[in-house]
Design a protein around this nucleic acid. Structure first.
Lengths: 113, 113
DNA sequence: TTGATATTTCAATAATAGTTGAAATATCCT
DNA sequence: AGGATATTTCAACTATTATTGAAATATCAA
């Protein structure tokens, strides 16, 4: 991941409404949420939501697809993981770093195998 | 960690020079680097570095201390870990998330036990 | 104290970001 | 086709961000 894309991704998340939107999408799962739903949840004008979600999309943090007259946005978990990877990769460069740095929701048995 | 501080931290990192400065400090370790050293490494004016590093400090991502006529800045590893924690905590909310999401310098056997 | 070094503060300017409402585009339903 | 719904695009405006150079502050060394 290039530094420029990291800056874009961080910039996309560094705004109240966009961070909130992204969290809603992360929690919503792969099906995502409609633009209108997000605008309503965030209590901002549709054009404003469109402006913000476009930046998340441009940063590659969310994907979009049409479903009827709605456009559904969904979090891109791979991009999220890449961003985390970049930051953590450059963290702890030999230094003693906080061990609880990563907090997956569930450690899950399948990964231990 | 509050959403507002996360936005501030992300915003602090979402800029070419600041991201570069932070990475240099992360790699430099606890001793940190002098403001002048950073300005030179990033090839920007001292006043510009001062402007940027102040934002990283304001976001709590770096600490500062005087050493002679120099002011040394150092990465705050705890703040970094907190930021990671906030983001990963809200990632994978029950969803199947990329397992390679976290990349500590060393996976280390002690965690497998 | 004087002069040199290291950094910050300030003011001015240029560029970017965010909001709003109106108009344009796409889809659905009858 | 015609009307309603969902979203985006556009233009105008305000606010914030980044850069520069000059002046101010703090430290050191003679």
């Amino acid at each position: 991941m290039e530094s420029a894309s990291v800056v874009r991704a961080l910039g996309a998340l560094a705004q109240e409404h966009r961070l909130a939107a992204f969290r809603l999408l992360v929690q919503a799962g792969p099906d995502g949420l409609a633009a209108g739903t997000l605008a309503e949840a965030l209590d901002i004008a549709p054009s404003s939501l469109s402006f913000h979600i476009a930046q998340l999309a441009n940063a590659g943090l969310v994907s979009q697809r049409r479903a009827g007259r709605s456009i559904l946005y969904a979090a891109d978990y791979d991009a999220m993981a890449d961003l985390m990877g970049f930051l953590t990769e450059n963290c702890c460069g030999g230094m003693p770093c906080a061990p609880a740095q990563c907090k997956p929701a569930k450690p899950s048995e399948k990964d231990v195998a």
